[in-house]
Simulated scan of single mutants.
Amino acid sequence: MKLSAFIESVGVIGPGLANWPQSADVLAARAPYASARTVLPPPEGLPAAERRRTGAVVKIALAVGHEAVAASGRDAATLAAVFAASGGDGQNCHIICDALASDDRLLSPTRFHNSVHNAPAGYWSIATRDQATSNVLCAHDGSFAAGLLESACQVAVDGVPTLLIAYDADYPEPLHTLRPVADAFGVALVLAPQAGAATLARLDVTLTEAFATPLASPELEALRTNNPAARALPLLEALACMNQAGQASQSGQPAKPAEPAKPARVVIDYLPELRMQIDVTPAGALGEGA
């Protein structure tokens, strides 16, 4: 079975990756990659009281979600959303466990409501006044693929644009020893049922037993394998390499004329014995009625 959707925009944040334009340059080797701790911006759109209560996963989810929605030109308040993560707020979980292991076992309501897996979805609805349907799921290291599969199903079955937000953050010790997630990473995609003016590419999704596509950069490959949300990187690399037009060289000289973007195929991790194959067809290669 094949599911298809049209991707309109991307949001990214991660170690040494500030946003999608900068990340696209790095992934397409138009700019060098300089690894650095992820810089999480304040959660846009939230009232001051809610901003003070948010942890890393909420900040990641809101940052990439806002970027993707703004680039698509759509209204966040009307978009169905899928949130995917392998875990919750690791720092908050650590503090709760620490408190429960102490003599003072009282927990604040804020700690409790930030510990649930759907907390980022709740904060997103507050920040954007989004009243459309939202789903929140977890599939351990295959959470990005599960989120993409769910999003593609919604696009195909319900015929509505859908926002996918996938995110994961690192845990403090001693949890980090058991769950060694490398830093914070998030990605958001706006997917639509039909091609439009904002379309970047068409994604055709199927399941496969083929091995996942590695990245040529050792540092980016390490990020891909060490953060579940970063399993999206092969797909992001394919999209970045299709966006060559109008780029200048690192020396400041005009770029060489870009060749027409070509379709690509990548495989990303999903289940232990099953992966996800994604065929990416650039907008320029889509025929009428695609």
Rank of each mutant, 00 (worst) to 15 (best):
P47V: 08
E50G: 06
L27V: 12
A49V: 08
L27Q: 10
I60K: 00
A56R: 09
E67V: 01
G55Y: 02
V26K: 09
P41S: 15
A63W: 02
V58W: 04
P47Y: 07
A36Q: 06
A31H: 11
K59H: 04
A36N: 05
R52T: 00
T54W: 00
G45F: 15
R51N: 02
R37M: 11
P41G: 12
T54A: 00
A31R: 14
E67L: 01
P41L: 10
R51L: 02
R37K: 15
V39S: 13
V64M: 05
A61L: 01
V64R: 03
A49M: 08
P47C: 11
A48C: 06
R53Q: 07
P43A: 12
P32M: 12
H66V: 06
P42W: 10
T54F: 00
R37Q: 14
L40D: 03
T54E: 02
P43S: 13
P41E: 09
A48K: 05
L40F: 04
R52M: 06
I60V: 14
A61T: 01
R30V: 10
R52S: 06
A36H: 02
A48T: 12
A34F: 14
A48S: 09
Y33V: 01
A34Q: 15
L62A: 03
A48N: 10
A61G: 01
V58P: 09
E44G: 14
A61N: 00
A28T: 08
L27Y: 10
G55D: 10
L27N: 10
A61I: 00
L62M: 08
A36L: 02
A31Q: 12
A31W: 15
R52E: 11
R53I: 01
R37F: 03
S35F: 13
V64L: 05
P42H: 14
P47D: 07
G55V: 04
P47W: 09
A56T: 07
A63N: 09
A63H: 06
R37T: 10
E44C: 14
A28R: 14
H66P: 04
P47N: 11
Y33C: 01
A49E: 14
P43Q: 05
V57G: 07
A36G: 05
E67Q: 01
R52N: 10
E67R: 04
G55I: 04
H66N: 06
A28D: 11
A49L: 13
R53L: 05
G55F: 02
I60L: 03
E50P: 06
L62R: 02
G45S: 14
T38D: 02
R52H: 08
